[in-house]
Design a protein around this nucleic acid. Structure first.
Length: 594
RNA sequence: GGAGCGGUAGUUCAGCUGGUUAGAAUAUUGCCCUGUCAAGGCAAGGGUCGCGGGUUCGAGUCCCGUCCGCUCCGCCA
């Protein structure tokens, strides 16, 4: 049907006959000569229609934007002075001899080269996807998955599929449920991840498994969270965390080298969870922002200023500062804006000190909290923060979680606002996560990672004695402030697994019911194993410079988890519901919860 | 569940402290035009101001509710 792609017509084809297929990108009708920019997957080429070619010219007059054409034409260099350096094919043009209109097109709801709202883009996603820039992201995504498959295959990993219709899990995210027709009143769950299946594959002796697999979580959406998303899921037997991390680093380094021609560091820097929280207030720090927390908790224990002294003396409290070089130039209004920004993270306010003149001591400082702090404390603050004339110090005080959340978010926002974000790629590992986190709401321990993560101690008694300080063998890979992967060495002994379930408040009976198959499998010769899962959408988002994973998912959902293209979800008809043994209570019919 | 921003022509937007017939650009349609490449010129058509209610002599504009989109908090082992 075609002899070559539009985007690949080059000078080497000069005076040859080509057959092109594609869409009318633009049409310029000069009355006596008509130009059509013909677009296909590989690019755009200019086709010229002269009146001498009567039939072709007549067709070209009828043609409109986005008509689908098949063109026979001859390649020739453009006349001198009419080359277009902005076009890859700009040195040549194709003189049309025959045109076939393969299809007409109604005027598009929007023009492909104009800015258009995401709402309209998603409703007409198939048109949005025609745009070359949008196209490019999916081409890159395909190259990424192809590279990953090749790499893992060469490393001896087996690509094995796991069920989409599976069992609901307690803990973790809300499940998407699928009613069973053959088992009235019972439901499958779509997998939040193939976690247990990949562990079972290790117990099955597969040793190295990977899968590029869709996962489902029925939670609220964000720019980097969709209800269905894709993981690169990996599991290995007879390894420890260093083997796995080294291999995964190597995979990432090779990926970035091959796809983006970028050299990632070797090895990746590695931070403990504790250090990451201390220095950045985040377990996924963006190392491109050259600002760090300065801890002041010890300094504030004795001050009379309760806002600082109280958290300083609270074991769960924290006082920390963020020093902004040249932050003095921030206006009162900007500081007010940052204050209301941190209140969304639970902060009561945002104390600050402007350093107008570092030489002038207290007189060189400007701050509403100055009067509450003794000279010696002020001197120590200035010393620790390495403040200079022009610096602005922000303070966070309160529960450690709140200080970390608010100051951590402020660090990123200021980094962006003041253009402090360094260009490039900053990957790192975060390790030594706590095994458990106390949940005040439910009054119980929660697994920070998931309940199958191995503690970094051998003895069950040790875990049970010190759940609050016990570390896990989990690791996260972070890139430019985004968590792109996480995993762990797993528990491979049933007694340890039972103990962890117990600590999490999962009783014997519930553990049997929900995870009986896992506990059984652990008894029949389970190898030590561990793995990791990467958020493929997030990874590709970063690699393409997109600001949302929706940009790298062909047909994404909106924030309320609906599809503007297909109008899913939609009501089921009565017959379907009857077969599934389901009766729907419409929202109006639901009795108010008392 | 909560906070913020937005919703006006097919599209992207403007529309001031409420006041004639709601504008621009672009797209569309017609005519003119032989070297453009976001072609150009002339002309025309195109509006449930998201939806519902309220205030007012009068509402795109003010108030209340609601729906939709986006960002964030909660949530996401």
């Amino acid at each position: 049907m075609r002899s070559c792609y539009c985007g690949q017509v080059s000078e080497s084809l000069t005076s040859q006959l080509v057959i092109l297929c594609g869409w009318v990108h633009h049409r310029r009708d000069h009355g006596g000569v008509i130009f059509i920019d013909l677009r296909d997957r590989e690019g755009i080429v200019q086709v010229v229609f002269n009146p001498e070619q009567t039939e072709a010219f007549a067709s070209a007059e009828r043609v409109r934007n986005e008509y689908v054409l098949r063109i026979h034409g001859r390649v020739r260099p453009r006349p001198e002075g009419t080359e277009n350096p902005d076009l890859a094919t700009g040195k040549i043009e194709v003189v049309a001899e025959q045109v076939e209109i393969l299809n007409t097109a109604d005027p598009l709801p929007f023009q492909l080269d104009e800015h258009v709202s995401e709402e309209v883009r998603l409703r007409f996603r198939y048109l949005d996807l025609r745009r070359p820039q949008v196209h490019a992201r999916f081409r890159l995504r395909a190259k990424v998955t192809n590279f990953l498959r090749k790499f893992l295959d060469e490393q001896g990993f087996l690509d094995i599929e796991t069920p989409m219709l599976t069992k609901a899990t307690p803990e973790g995210a809300r499940d998407y449920l699928v009613p069973s027709r053959t088992h009235p009143g019972e439901f499958f769950a779509l997998p939040q991840s193939p976690q247990l299946f990949k562990q079972l594959l290790m117990m099955a002796g597969m040793e190295r498994y990977y899968q590029i697999v869709r996962c489902f979580r029925d939670e609220d959406l964000r720019a980097d969270r969709q209800p269905e998303f894709t993981q690169l899921d990996i599991e290995m037997s007879f390894i420890d965390e260093m083997v796995l991390r080294n291999l995964m680093e190597s995979m990432m380094r090779n990926l970035f080298k091959e796809i983006l021609n970028v050299e990632l560091p070797n090895p990746f820097p590695c931070l403990t969870y504790r250090e990451a929280m201390l220095r950045y207030g985040s377990d996924k720090p963006d190392l491109r922002v050259p600002l760090e927390f300065i801890d002041l908790s010890d300094l504030m224990k004795e001050v009379e200023f309760k806002v600082f002294s109280q958290p300083a003396n609270d074991p769960d409290g924290r006082v920390a500062a963020l020093s902004i070089p040249n932050g003095q130039s921030l206006s009162r209004k900007q500081i007010d804006d940052y204050t209301s920004f941190v209140t969304t993270y639970g902060a009561k306010g945002l104390a600050y000190i402007k350093v107008n003149d570092i030489q002038a001591g207290r007189d060189g400082l400007q701050s509403p909290i100055l009067k509450f702090l003794p000279d010696q404390v002020i001197q120590e603050i200035l010393k620790r923060t390495q403040a200079e004339t022009g610096s602005l110090l922000f303070f966070g005080a309160g529960k450690a979680k709140m200080v970390n959340d608010s100051l951590g978010a402020l660090r990123l926002k200021i980094g962006e606002d003041l253009k402090l974000v360094q260009p490039g790629w900053k990957p790192l590992w975060v390790i030594d996560f706590p095994m458990f986190e106390w949940d005040d709401k439910d009054n119980r321990w929660m697994a920070l990672h998931h309940p199958f993560t191995a503690p970094n101690v051998q003895k069950i008694a040790e875990v049970e004695a010190t759940p609050g300080t016990c570390m896990s063998r989990a690791y996260d890979m972070v890139l430019n402030g985004t968590e792109i992967g996480g995993g762990s060495i797993r528990i491979h002994r049933s007694d340890m697994q039972s103990a962890v379930f117990r600590l999490l408040g999962i009783g014997e009976e519930e553990a049997r019911e929900k995870f009986g198959f896992l506990l059984d499998a652990l008894k029949y010769g389970c190898p030590p194993h561990g793995g990791i899962a990467f958020g493929l959408d997030r990874l590709v988002m970063l690699m393409t410079g997109a600001h949302s994973i929706r940009e790298v998912i062909a047909f994404p959902k909106t924030q309320t988890a609906s599809c503007l293209l297909t109008s899913a979800p939609s009501p089921a008809n009565a017959l379907q519901l009857r077969e599934l043994h389901i009766r729907v209570k419409t929202p109006q019919a639901v009795e108010p919860v008392t």
